[in-house]
Design a protein around this nucleic acid. Structure first.
Length: 429
RNA sequence: GGAGAGGUGGCAGAGUGGUCGAAUGCACUCGCUUGGAAAGCGAGCAGACGUGAAAGCGUCUCGGGAGUUCGAAUCUCCCCCUCUCCGCCA
């Protein structure tokens, strides 16, 4: 959620950011107009309420309350009538009132971009910051992971389709074990870096989903139960970020760093026909998510550290990857700035996203009311939140299969995973 | 799922229709005291929003919502959550 105060103080900054995202900045003027209307209505309503409170107090103080009440009755009735109208007007306009025009506008407006985000309307303008390793070379014709996986008997797509339809897969034997090895490896590394491991609910309320900014833009992409009003998390970013919603954290307990291994559920409704083969894009996948809550002045540095933490995992796994700074048009709804980690996927002959590390600044905190207090006397301030995967299990597994495949059809296991796998390779049979 | 109890400030805990945003205690902050500390004493200590240059003023919030009333933390209704017992169950 954008800060209405900021829009009031510096509308040009908000317009500029919207333009850079390829949006019509006209909403800024609309917000200003509605906000003005709302505040004048609020002032009027509060004035009337104050008058009413004053008269009521007078009755309360009177010796003969009944008489006083009788005397002031006409005035109060008149006030009550006016109040009703004024309050209705306030409700129509209030920014925190669902379905008010101001609320609609604000809830659909994405975060203000960081100044360091490059211009550009789509992914082609993203900036490659650094590359580690090189696209894997093969002395034979490498197989895509879905073929490789089926030949090795560790991936079963037909039966997944039988059970659940398209965009599901089944990991079998060493495949399932490899996923578990990755999970353990990721969580162990996170713990070593001071992340607190969390095992959160995978079903969250509408309020929780709303508070992290998932609902306004991605409602269609989520699985939900309407009776219970619960949503399956599309990412552990949601429960982890909302963890401290409504709380005021002591500044000296920041940053808070959390890691959670969870399944994630997405409808992938807008991705029909995209990445239909293999396990790249599934309705259900697992990942380890990393979330930071920081003081405002530390979030920029935190983004670098968080990205580094995710990167370290790829390097340890000896996977070729690159780090990309997303351009204005490619940055999501919540973040002010995002680095994507992209791993080399031979079957795509391309780098594919394996982690997205974002600084959401105070955008989620404002909705979720995640605050900090610097000392006993200080006013609470909004915290900043960051998130990134460290890493997506399925995509890492896929990358290992494809990049570590051998001429004989087996797959070597990266050294750091061998203790977890208790094997050096996966071969058929 | 059934029965009961309860949800008040950071915590504990009073408050059952009228200056109650809320006694008191603890915790916390500042000051006095002290060689230093403890104890003691004094003061402060909820959040949001609006208004204002500021001091301040105003409005709202006692789980959430609706209602009764001139006036609700206190009364009524609905919902949510927690705890205890029973049932069921991984």
């Amino acid at each position: 959620m954008l800060d209405v105060g900021l829009i009031r103080r510096d509308p040009e900054r908000v317009r500029l950011s919207a333009k850079r995202r390829g949006l019509d900045p006209a909403f800024v003027d609309e917000v200003l107009r509605l906000d003005e209307e709302y505040r004048s209505a609020l002032t009027a309503a509060e004035g009337a309420q104050a008058e009413k409170n004053r008269l009521s107090a007078e009755i309360g103080k009177a010796v003969d309350k009944a008489a006083a009440a009788r005397e002031l009755r006409p005035k109060l009735d008149q006030l009550a009538q006016r109040l009703e109208d004024l309050e209705a007007r306030v409700r129509e306009l209030a920014p925190n009132e669902r379905h008010s025009p101001l609320y609609e506008l604000l809830s659909q407006s994405p975060n203000i971009l960081d100044d360091s985000v490059p211009d550009g309307s789509d992914a082609s303008k993203n900036v490659v910051l650094r590359t580690s390793g090189e696209p894997t070379k093969f002395s034979f014709d490498p197989l895509p992971h879905w073929e490789l996986g089926e030949r090795l008997g560790i991936l079963d797509f037909p039966r997944a389709a039988k059970l659940s339809g398209s965009r599901f897969s089944i990991l079998v034997g060493p495949g399932a074990r490899l996923a578990r090895a990755l999970t353990q490896f990721f969580l162990d590394r996170a713990a070593a870096k001071g992340y607190i491991e969390v095992n959160p609910p995978l079903l969250v309320s509408r309020d929780t989903m709303w508070s992290t900014g998932q609902l306004s833009k991605f409602a269609d992409a989520m699985f939900r139960d309407d009776d219970a009003e619960l949503f399956l998390v599309p990412t552990a970013e949601v429960p982890l970020t909302a963890l401290h919603g409504g709380e005021i954290l002591a500044a000296d307990t920041l940053p808070r760093k959390y890691a959670a291994f969870t399944p994630c559920f997405r409808k992938e409704a807008g991705a029909a026909g995209k990445d239909t083969r293999g396990i790249l894009r599934q309705h259900q996948f697992e990942k380890v998510e990393l979330v930071w809550v920081t003081a405002p002045e530390n979030s920029a540095g935190a983004l670098e550290a968080l990205t580094q933490d995710a990167e370290d995992l790829l390097r340890e796994l000896e996977l070729p990857y690159r780090v990309v700074l997303l351009c204005a048009g490619d940055v999501g709804f919540n973040p002010a700035k995002t680095y994507d980690l992209e791993v080399w996927v031979p079957s795509s002959q391309a780098y594919r996203e394996i982690s997205s590390c974002s600084n959401c600044t105070d955008f989620q905190s404002r909705r979720a009311a995640i605050r900090l207090r610097r000392d006993a006397k200080a006013k609470p301030e909004l915290a900043h939140t960051l998130n990134g995967s460290g890493l997506a299990i399925g995509r890492t597994l896929l990358a290992i299969l494809e990049n570590f495949q051998q001429a004989d059809g087996s797959v070597a296991i990266p050294g750091v995973l061998q203790p977890y796998m208790r094997a050096e390779k996966i071969s058929a049979g």
